[in-house]
Amino acid sequence: MSYAVSGALQAAVFAALSQDAALSALVGTGIYDAVPAGSVPDIYVRLGSETVREASDGSGAGAVHFLTVSVITTSPGFATAKAAATAVSDALQDVELELSRGRLISLRFERATARRIDAASARQIDLRFRARVQDD
């Protein structure tokens, strides 16, 4: 197994989301790896947890990364959050990302969970993606 591609994958996912016009139209620059201190926009995207599993084969070291990207909003209802979640999904579905180390074999949507948070005053949608990478 190789965890070595993790940082390169995260940077590429962040760049893809930050450069997506449809997502930017909904959240502006509110795309974070770490949410900044202080006030945040009414809607934003946060890169979340990651689980990695061994996926080496005869061609070399590899791994499967399960990535979570969250959309968080204080807007009432789920419509705004779902629009942004759709844009996140569209931006990452079957995209060819250039990694600074290794290469992306595939990136696919796996599942999503929508829920109320902060005593039901906010909404959060967690989108989980499955990325297969190889460390060349």
Rank of each mutant, 00 (worst) to 15 (best):
V95P: 03
I72G: 04
Q124T: 01
A83K: 13
D118Y: 14
D118L: 05
K82E: 15
P76E: 09
A63P: 09
R108E: 08
S70R: 11
T73H: 06
T113M: 12
F78C: 09
D118P: 01
A85C: 08
L104K: 10
L97V: 08
A112L: 02
S75F: 14
A85S: 12
L67R: 15
V71A: 06
A85F: 04
S89K: 13
G77L: 08
A112C: 02
D90Y: 01
H65K: 06
T80V: 15
F78D: 12
A63Y: 07
V71S: 04
S100V: 03
E98M: 15
E96P: 05
L67S: 08
A81Y: 11
L67E: 08
I72F: 08
R123I: 00
V69H: 03
L67C: 09
A85P: 05
A114D: 15
E96H: 08
S70N: 10
A79E: 15
T80S: 10
A84N: 04
R101V: 00
A63G: 09
I105P: 01
T74H: 10
A81R: 06
L107C: 06
R101K: 10
E110T: 01
T73C: 03
A112W: 02
R115M: 13
V88W: 02
V95L: 02
V69Y: 06
V64Y: 00
L107W: 02
A114T: 05
A91F: 02
I117F: 04
A120N: 15
A83N: 12
G77C: 04
F66C: 02
I105C: 05
L67N: 07
T80Q: 10
L107I: 06
V69G: 03
A81K: 07
D90S: 14
T80R: 11
T80Y: 07
E96D: 13
G77Y: 10
H65T: 04
R103W: 12
G77M: 07
A83Q: 14
L92G: 06
I117H: 03
T74G: 15
A114I: 00
Q93P: 00
F78K: 09
E98I: 15
A120E: 15
A83C: 10
R108F: 00
